[in-house]
Design a protein around this nucleic acid. Sequence first.
RNA 1: UACCCGGUGGUGUAACGGUAACACAGCAGGUUUUGGUCCUGCAUUUCGAGGUUCGAAUCCUCGCCGGGUAGCCA
Length: 571
Amino acid sequence: MAANDEPRPLHFIRQIVADDLASGKHGGRVVTRFPPEPNGYLHIGHAKSICLNFGLARENRGGVCHLRMDDTNPSKEEQEYVDAIIRDVRWLGFDWGDKLFYASDYFDRIYEYALDLIKKGKAYVCDLTADEVRDHRGTLTEPGKGSPHRNRSIAENLDLFTRMAAGEFPDGSRTLRARIDMASPNINMRDPVMYRILRAAHHRTGDKWCVYPMYDYAHCVSDAIEGITHSICTLEFENHRPLYDWFLDALETPHHPQQIEFARLNVTHTVMSKRKLLKLVKEGLVRGWDDPRMPTIAGLRRRGFTPESIRDFCERVGVGKNESLVDIALLEHCLREDLNKRAPRVMAVLKPLRVVIENYPEGMVEEMDAVNNPEDSSAGTRKVPFSRVLYIERDDFMEDPPRKFFRLAPGREVRLRYAYFVTCTSAVKDPATGEVVELRCTYDPATRGGGAPDGRNVKATLHWVSAAHARDAEVRLYDHLLSAEDPDDAGEGDAFMSAINPGSLQALAGCKVEPGLAAAAPGAFFQFERLGYFCADSEDFRPDALVFNRTVGLRDTWARAQGRKEPQARG
RNA sequence: UACCCGGUGGUGUAACGGUAACACAGCAGGUUUUGGUCCUGCAUUUCGAGGUUCGAAUCCUCGCCGGGUAGCCA
């Protein structure tokens, strides 16, 4: 949670804020806001905006960041989303104190401001249908035509608008529009709609209103009401800035926030649009908004990402104005870097292969000392039971190994981590299939703990788990949900669906884990040595039914060298 | 075709008229009781053409390329 610890490069928004602070532009204050619409779950793209807005407030003395639900369209918004947003922003590590607001809190004032605008002759009630409005708007290259109702008297506009709000007219029959310029090259300025008639129960105001303000009008007014200094949004609102300023100038509001636009975050192998994510949820392609394959904050959390790593990622991707596609490898790097320092090491075997140490006494059990985290000596050590029958990873044995394979093979000696050197004497095969089902080995009692008194060395150290003491577990391996690097590149609409990776989830049953893992807390993270970072699933993990998610694999130069083509869930 | 915004290694971001750099990814070594971590090294960059200037990634002009915009969505 670095606040002012390190000198950071000043990206253009920090620069603007610093300049404004220096010139006293907003009375030396920094007030930002994160304004999600509660119509879906927050995703990694929102995390960038959250870190930016809350970060700006945090890193400047006296700065504040409001959390504001932009709930001006009751037909799409739900309380479930409000709750999820609050949970996610808080989990990311940000605090808004008592500054939790809703655009709907301001409906009365927004309405009063609309009346003001009418009185100034700058807004009028228009009776055109939606289709007619579109026809009058013109096109990108042709100017629009004025509405026939553009020059109604102020008195008539006042009367009509109050009656709109009173429920005298059917949905969609009239709108309140700003009177600006139908010939403006900026289509947003061609008498934009300010209010529409819409009879839908609002999650907060119920049926109090049947007219709801549009984004362009409500947002700038909400910002002004809250005394926002820097109103940060994404690039697609750049063309709306003249309108943002027009409303606030026309209304002569006490505050006039500055709208600043930045490029939204895109990440490879994923989609960010709420509509698309909703589709994945609704079509059952994922288990829900919090499916560990989803780029949602809830999904990343369940997958095992830490808030620290996400914040670090958001800082590293930078803030700019050019559209970019960030390699998901950077996110994974941030995660590994964080987890490497903090995750307790533990041994788990995903694809077990039975090993019998023939010269190890039957019935004997030794408690081996294992280091919990070589990156953190304060993490201490633990005891791991060792006995005559063990499991090792199937991938750690090859009957006929290629040149650079360092692991176990017939006649070869390797180290069992924190235990002994063992030598494979033979492989037992299933006579029917020829599959190796068991390894017979011998151990060297002099190598207890993993060191050889005679100084000889081995080329590999394997993880293992004692068969008699192991606990069964289900382990879920994940790969990219979308196999295309840029799924949106496939085209408009639902074209991204063609990039769905059918192998994005691979659930392994019968995995064998260290006994201590039965006591794991749901959500707790670990490094399964030599495999990757895993977490106890926050929903499905129970002491008698262990379920782990692979958060991200370790860097694996061996697998890469092999150029693995197996359709194996990675990552 | 109108308006707006952008174009720096494979990716992302810096350099604020003065030696183009950092991170990720890639490759090659070293260390190692995790083929992890860590350490070292390598390769790859200013969209193009003019102009201003002693000097341009940076300023100007014109191109080219990419994105956004015609919801009573946000």
